[in-house]
Design a protein around this nucleic acid. Sequence first.
DNA 1: CACTTGCGTGGATACGTTTTCAAGCATCTC
DNA 2: GAGATGCTTGAAAACGTATCCACGCAAGTG
Lengths: 354, 354
Amino acid sequence: MAKRATIKDVAEAAGVGVATVSRVLSGGSASPQTRERVLAVAAQLDYRPSALGRNLRQRRTGGMGLLVPDLTDTFHAQLAEGVLACARSAGEPVVIGSTGGDPEQESELIGMLLEQSVDRLIAVPSGDEESWAPAIRAGMTVVFADRLPAAPPVEEDPAVSALNDLLLLDGAAPPPARAKPLDVPSVVADDRGGIRTAVRYLRGLGHRRIAFIGGPGHDRRAAAFREAVGEPLDEELIVFGTGSRDSAYAAASGLFQSRPDLTAVVAGGNVLGEAAVLAARELDLRVPRDVSLIMYDDVPWAELCSPPLTVVAQPGRDMGYRAAELVLRSGGRRQRSVVLPTELIVRGSCGPRR
Amino acid sequence: MAKRATIKDVAEAAGVGVATVSRVLSGGSASPQTRERVLAVAAQLDYRPSALGRNLRQRRTGGMGLLVPDLTDTFHAQLAEGVLACARSAGEPVVIGSTGGDPEQESELIGMLLEQSVDRLIAVPSGDEESWAPAIRAGMTVVFADRLPAAPPVEEDPAVSALNDLLLLDGAAPPPARAKPLDVPSVVADDRGGIRTAVRYLRGLGHRRIAFIGGPGHDRRAAAFREAVGEPLDEELIVFGTGSRDSAYAAASGLFQSRPDLTAVVAGGNVLGEAAVLAARELDLRVPRDVSLIMYDDVPWAELCSPPLTVVAQPGRDMGYRAAELVLRSGGRRQRSVVLPTELIVRGSCGPRR
DNA sequence: CACTTGCGTGGATACGTTTTCAAGCATCTC
DNA sequence: GAGATGCTTGAAAACGTATCCACGCAAGTG
C-alpha cells in the first residue's frame, strides 16, 4: 500500500547524492563513513532497489528465461528444478515458458522474452537451428539443455551425416550442410554412452531385435542407437512419436503390433517409456518375459512399476543447475559445453531373451 | 546485435509525435490515416515496444509470478502447465519460483518478486497466513491454488476449529482465532467431497481401519478425512510427512509398521501415494490384497503401477488455468474463489477387506 | 610552493515508455 | 458570426536507476 522508498529518499535522508547511494549499494567505492551511513539509512527505510529502474537503465532484464517443452514430463521438471535452484541462490528471477514441443510457440515465447529484454535463455529446444538464429542474432546468450536444435532441413550430405554420428559425444552442434552452424554452449547428457551401454546390456541378455522409440528431440539418441546396434540395421525398429502422450502410445502400440518379433525396447524418454509399458500391457505382453524395456530418464515412478523399470539415468537436476551457471557466468567470455555422464540403473524390466 | 527500434524512431519515420505512436499501438484514438501510417512504419521497422520502458512508467511488471513447492511433484507440474497455458494465450510472462515447501524460501522469493515489481501472484502456499500478510500489504494481487495458507500458530479454540471443519467446502480461508483473516481468492479442489467419496468407497469395501498420509498443506484434506471417518477417530492413523520424498516414505513405512491392523490408506498427494506403494512393497504388503490404497491426484504414472492406482483426480491443469485467469482479470474488482470438483477414478488398488 | 595525481562526491543525463495537458482545427449550435 | 463542442495531436513530464563527468580536496612529487 505505502509506496516503497526510492533511491532518492535514501539519498535525502542520508544527506548524500543519489549517485553515492547507487555506488554504495552496487559495491562501488565510497568512504567508510558514508557507506555506513547510507547502509544504515537504507536499512531503516527498508529500501529495496527497484529492478524496473535498473533494468531500464541497463537496457536488460536480469535473470534468465527458461523454455521447456512440457513440465509434465518429469525429466523436464527435474531440469527446471535445477535451474530454479541455481537462480534462487543467485537471487535472480526466472521467466518460464512451456512450448508444448511446438517450434511456433517456441518462437512466440522467444519473442515475448525479447520484448521483456531477457537476454539470457536456457532452452530445451524444439525448433531447428534456423528458428534459433534470430534469438542469437538479437544478442541473446543462449544455453541449450538436454538436446540441441536439429539441423535445418537441407539436402542431406551422407559424408557430413556420418561425421556427425561420429562426433555425437561432444556437445557441439552438428554443423548443417549449408548454413553456418550456430555456436551455442550446451549442457547435455552423454547420450551416446548411455544408449550404447543400454544396447550392450540387452545384447548381453541375448536380445538381437531391439527397437527404439523416440520423441521429438531424440535424434541424437536415435543416431546413437543406430551406431550402437550397427549392421544390419532394421530401420523398422526405430519409431518416433510427436511428443504427446497419445502419439507416444500410438507409436509404441504400432511398433509392438507390426513387429511382434522384437524382444527388447529402448525408450528415448520417460514419456515414451510410460507409453511402452501401457502399450505392452494392453497387448498382453509381459515385461520382461515377453519384452525387455529400458527407459531413458530415471524418474521417481520408475521404481513403482512392476517390475521396476531398468533405466538410463541422466542427472536432470544437475543439468539444469549447470546450464543456469553457464548462462549466468557468461559475463563476456564464451562458455564451453558440458556433457554429463549417464548411468544404467538395472532394476527388473529386462530379462534374457526367451 | 543491431539495437532495436524505439518508439522515437517510429515517430520520426512516420512524421508524428511519440505520443501518437504510443496511442495507436495501445489502441487509443487516432485518425485512420495516421493510424495506418504508424502501423505501416512500425511493421517496416520491426518495432516491438520494450516492456522495460512500459514497466517503469506504469511502476509494475506485467505478467505474474508463480510459486510452487516442487515442480517434480507431478500435480504441481500440471498446475504450472495450466498457468503457463493461460499466460501464453495472454502474451504475458510468468516468473516462476520453487519454494521447496519452505516458508523461508517462499518469503525470499516473494521479496524477489516485489523487487521485480511483479504485483500478481499465483501461489501454492507453504507459509502460514502470517507470512503472507506482507505480500498482501505490499499491494500484490494474490491467488492461492490447491491449498490455503495455514492459520498462524495461535492458541487453538476448539469451537472455531470445529467451525472451520464445517466450513471446509467453501474456498474462504479459515479465519484464525486472532489476526484478521486475509481475504484472498483461491482456486482449490473440493477436498471435502473427494476425501469423503474415497472414504465411503473404502467403507463400502468393508474397510474400518483407514489411515491417512498427508504432507505439508494437506490440512484441509486431513480435516476432511477426520470428518468423513467420524467417530471413533483413531488419531494414530493420521500421519504426516514434511514434503520430501524421503520423509513421505518414512511416514508411510512407520505407519504400516506401527499399525499392521490397518487395511486401507488414503494418500493426500501423489508423492505420498508413491511413498505408500514403495513402503508397502518393502514390507511385503500386497496391494490391494493386504492393504487398499487411494491416492490423491491423478497422474499419468498412476496407471503404470500394478495394480493401477485408484485415485481421487483433481483437475490440476484447470486449476492453474483458472487461477491465472483470476489473477489476470483482477482489474480492480475482487474475484470470487473457485472450487473445482474431484472425481474418484477406480482402478485396481482397492479391494475388499480380507 | 606549484603542480600533478588520486579519490570521494553529487549534479546531470539517458534509458523507452505512458499519460497529462493544452493547443489546433473543424464542426455544430444559437 | 460568435461561441461551444469534439476530436486529433505533439510537447513534456514523469517512472527509478546507473553512469558519465566535473569538481573539490588531500596527499604525493618536483
